[in-house]
């Protein structure tokens, strides 16, 4: 078992746990944290594959993904503050005014 296999397996396990966090938790902030975990595991996989293929495009892609993740979390948390201001709670099932 080489380093590549170990890191890729770790990325797969973290991705699965991230999916479970997004689907099972009820707080919007936990959903956002699960998305961060998903992005982090995808980054790990990209870096390890790019390293073992002796390329640098994967690392540059990860640089851009981290920047977009920062932008996404800033927007997501400001939406979350609005959600709390309007509904008094950040549970996902409370924000259901669009429901017909």
């Amino acid at each position: 078992m080489t380093n590549d296999v170990l890191v890729q397996t770790l990325a797969a396990v973290l991705f699965t746990i991230g999916i479970l966090v997004v689907l099972l938790r009820r707080d919007t902030i936990m959903v956002l944290m699960g998305i961060e975990l998903l992005l982090n595991s995808a980054n790990l996989s990209l870096v390890a594959f790019s390293k073992s293929a002796a390329m640098i495009e994967g690392q540059l892609q990860v640089f851009f993904v981290i920047t977009i993740a920062a932008a996404e979390s800033a927007i997501g948390l400001s939406i979350l503050i609005n959600l709390y201001r309007n509904f008094g709670s950040i549970k996902t099932q409370n924000a259901s005014t669009l429901k017909g």
């Binding site: 920047t67 932008a71 800033a74 927007i75 609005n82 201001r85």
Partner: peptide, 17 residues
Amino acid sequence: ALLIAIVGAVVLAKRKF
């Protein structure tokens, strides 16, 4: 994109809906 995110976050957090 980062600049747009900064402006968008400030607008979203300050505006009263």
